[in-house]
């Protein structure tokens, strides 16, 4: 039983480390920011999740001290990684407004989401889209 748990912890650590490394290699190798965003947000989050699950199995199974902290950190990271990726992509799009010219037409009366306000949006949302686009 101990051997199985040790094997599980080792596999999780090795898998997590491999994913961390793959995520960072992807961030170095990929051509521009919007493709580069994929590597850290998927692979690195999975890697740190693997390390945290390994730690949870290690302390609960081998040391006998069940701790809930890892679940807290994992949940926090898995919730916040998409939010920060979205913010980075949005800031990049508004900083490089020439990226807007390469977009195909939407075929609808409104433009692309982060550059134009949503149809029927309230005044606050409209203000958000316009001011961000033209600052």
């Amino acid at each position: 039983m101990t051997f199985v748990l040790e094997l599980l912890v080792s596999l999780l650590i090795v898998g997590g480390g491999a994913f961390l490394l793959i995520g960072s290699i992807g961030m170095v190798k990929l051509p521009d920011l919007l493709t580069r965003l994929h590597a850290p947000t998927k692979a690195t989050t999975l890697g740190v999740g693997g390390a945290l699950v390994a730690s949870m199995v290690f302390f609960a199974g081998l040391e006998g001290t069940l701790s809930i902290h890892e679940v807290l950190i994992t949940a926090f990271l898995f919730m916040t990684a998409p939010i920060s990726a979205h913010f980075i992509a949005k800031a990049h799009l508004h900083e490089h407004t020439e990226l807007r010219d390469g977009l195909p037409p939407t075929g609808r009366p409104v433009g692309w989401s982060t550059f134009d306000a949503a149809p029927g949006a309230g005044e606050a949302d409209e203000d958000d889209g316009r001011r961000g686009a033209h600052d």
């Binding site: 920011l33 580069r36 850290p40 990271l77």
Partner: peptide
Amino acid sequence: MDRVLAVDTMVINIIA
């Protein structure tokens, strides 16, 4: 934003 993304990823690696 590349630099911001790099710092964000560094924080995750440091947590690991």
